[in-house]
């Protein structure tokens, strides 16, 4: 698909989501997937700062635990932390460069081990304040152009808007309250992955795939359904365990 067509698709998707009652984590996940397609990168993650100014993963293009852990490693070091603190994008960072492993001794080898060659971090800004960062990883040696960086910034801005737009569920008039609700939703989702993985005797990643497929096809919001399951108010036997075979 031509980039213009892809972009149009993303715009339609974004517009559709933001005027409707939407699930933030699901939305950010789709947005991360679009980032991967549009920017020709291998992985993308949305990181949001918590009350301790520590970055937490809200969503990633690929929900596997290994990638989530790689983003989580950036809590105190890595390009996303530097981008969050400075408010400036950090692009085309060569992970094989000795400077990278010196600057981020835990993050860099872990990223290399996951097969990534370079990384980028784009700030998520809200009225002059930085609230998080978009992290992008590449497995090929292809630099992001200025146009790519501008597009990445636009997508980061969309992510910020979405976080502030989730009023209907968050019921919170304050921006901080909305950020808090988003971060809590992410944790509930991980707890529910564990609950389902054990009930079904599968991995958390497999459990999540089945859970998400069910939520999407039944128009349930991921966060809401996850809360019901965690509170024991939803019969999880209703969820088919292997979405691929339906």
């Amino acid at each position: 698909m031509a980039r213009e067509q892809q972009l149009t698709k993303v715009f339609v998707e974004v517009a559709d989501s933001l005027i409707d009652d939407f699930d933030l984590i699901d939305f950010l996940q789709r947005l991360s997937e679009r980032c991967v397609e549009l920017l020709d990168v291998a992985a993308c993650g949305v990181l949001l700062a918590d009350e301790h100014d520590v970055l937490q993963v809200l969503a990633a293009s690929d929900e596997n635990t290994r990638l989530l852990e790689l983003f989580a490693l950036q809590y105190d070091q890595g390009p996303c932390v530097e981008c969050y603190r400075s408010g400036r994008p950090r692009t085309n960072i060569d992970l094989a460069d000795p400077n990278a492993s010196q600057a981020w001794p835990q993050f860099t080898p872990a990223a290399l081990q996951s097969g990534f060659l370079s990384t980028n971090a784009i700030p998520m800004r809200l009225r002059g304040r930085v609230i998080g960062a978009l992290g992008l990883f590449q497995t090929r040696d292809s630099a992001l152009s200025d146009a790519d960086t501008a597009l990445a910034q636009a997508l980061a801005d969309v992510a910020t808007i979405a976080i502030l737009q989730q009023r209907t569920l968050a019921h919170s008039e304050t921006e901080r309250g909305q950020l808090q609700y988003a971060l809590t939703s992410r944790i509930v989702l991980e707890q529910v992955k564990g609950i389902l993985a054990e009930r079904w005797q599968v991995t958390p990643d497999q459990a999540f795939a089945a859970f998400r497929a069910y939520a999407r096809s039944h128009h349930h919001q991921l966060s809401h359904l996850a809360r019901l399951i965690a509170d024991g108010e939803f019969d999880t036997d209703q969820i088919p365990r292997s979405p691929r075979h339906r």
């Binding site: 989530l68 944790i187 992955k193 965690a230």
Partner: peptide, 9 residues
């Protein structure tokens, strides 16, 4: 994430 997943399990 793994701590929360383990909690659920």
């Amino acid at each position: 994430a793994v701590v929360h997943q383990a909690t659920g399990m």
